[in-house]
Design a protein around this nucleic acid. Structure first.
Lengths: 251, 251
DNA sequence: TGCAACTTGGCAAAATTTGGCAATATTTTT
DNA sequence: AAAAATATTGCCAAATTTTGCCAAGTTGCA
């Protein structure tokens, strides 16, 4: 059995189920633990799968739907939202990213801040805040139906004409290895640009994002950016944040 | 059985039912109580579920009620919409304006045309057509809450980068004196640009617009534009249309 | 024969199981 | 209804198993 054959079978298995154990693979492939282990090591290096103790797990290629994410850790998201809200003065201009955490932030805004100028690519947030903000600008672009938000080059171009005092963005995942990651290149690019186009940026990541790794690694944030978490992150995430000098606060 | 597998199954169970007992999970997963207990502890730490005595419960959140826009569908608008729809081939690109008549057109599209590329400034139409069109582009800009659509210089700039085979726009009023009129400069400008950026333009005006005169007079349409009415207009409107050489059809 | 890939063995680390005991819930008895 | 008896569960610590990782040995192939 050639290595390429094994790799193909391993990837097929991992595509069919969320995880596969080394033990199961040794039987299926007739190879020793160590060989399988090295196969997994290599495939993990190529980002084809995640290496975990005892086997491998599939790399999540898309994040769960917004409704699902909104149901995850609502308390943590609300606490983060309140923390950020306290830092935004009345009358400010704010760029708000698409996502479940930023949606929680928008819900708070609707109740307590009716004098803001808001710019967003999230249609759910836009319809939520439209009636209560002083002005609401929507970023045009290709509509992603699942996210109910716009992305793509048109959105980026649209945003390039816009500046704000604050940017509030989300993240797909936060891990020790890759730090902030996202599930699509489009989203990552747009988010980065949002940070660059604001005087102060906030990156919201609740604890359900810990240990989640998306495919796209976000670029280094501008210096004016602060990450806001709801709980103390795992040790390796904490170490990575400190090493990369990412400013962060715990709500 | 890998931890990741167990976690996935536990979360699936908890998503399906409001609560799940450790006892049931030990049987289903073939792991000991203590392992399950630690799994639940960890997942609860990530706020994926609630840890309770004897098992775990799902995190439930109140979902904001989705307000449904009351949709009346007058016969005239539907007839106009059908008339225009017949002229648009499958796979075409279409710019759709904001408004109630164009909304009727969009409803038809949703049922009969799932292979179009659509560009619109109307969020209601966007959410209606998003799931069924090949691609949907939203024009960015200032959100008009009453219209649930975007307008302003940003929308115009956005549109300047966009071209389509067809444009389907509405009108605020149609009268003998002023011909096509609108209620805001923003809307009129955007509509005119939509016509200019399409090979064929359709201006939809049902009979309820006949005796209405808006504040803003629309500029002369491009030659490629056809007005579509649902009934024969009053004599003076008819005369004006003929005099100004506006192409029109009655659905 | 030489080289690369694979296997085997061993040890440390991590995960899991097991058993015990206290706290809490449930049932039975008074 | 209160109290006692019984069962269940949480939590802790030790024992057991599994796994990772390293190094040495073996196999297969050109």
């Amino acid at each position: 059995m050639l290595p390429a054959e094994r790799h193909a079978i391993i990837l097929k298995e991992v595509a069919q189920q969320p995880a596969i154990s080394i033990r199961a693979l040794t039987e299926k492939l007739g190879a020793s633990r160590e060989t399988i282990r090295k196969d997994i090591e290599q495939l993990a290096g190529e980002n084809k799968l995640n290496k975990v103790r005892g086997g491998a797990t599939q790399i999540r290629t898309e994040e769960p739907a917004v409704e699902m994410r909104a149901a995850t850790n609502p308390k943590g998201k609300a606490r983060i939202a309140q923390h950020v809200l306290d830092k935004i003065p009345n009358g400010a201009s704010v760029i708000i990213d698409n996502g479940s955490t930023t949606l929680a932030f928008a819900r708070l805004l609707r109740e307590f801040r009716t004098d803001l100028s808001v710019c967003t690519n999230d249609l759910t947030i836009a319809e939520l805040l439209g009636p209560v903000t002083r002005e609401l600008t929507i970023l045009g672009g290709r509509l992603d139906v699942k996210e109910n938000a716009t992305f793509g080059s048109a959105a980026i171009e649209n945003l390039s004409r816009f500046r704000a005092e604050f940017a509030v963005i989300g993240a797909g995942g936060l891990s020790g290895k890759a730090l902030f990651t996202d599930f699509s290149r489009d989203a990552a690019d747009l988010r980065h640009l949002m940070l660059e186009h604001a005087e102060h940026g906030f990156v919201l990541a609740d604890s359900s994002k810990f240990s989640v790794v998306g495919q796209v690694v976000m670029r280094r944030f501008p210096a004016s950016t602060t990450a806001v978490l709801d709980t103390e992150p795992p040790a390796e995430v904490m170490a990575a944040l400190l090493e990369k000098a990412v400013a962060f606060e715990i709500a």
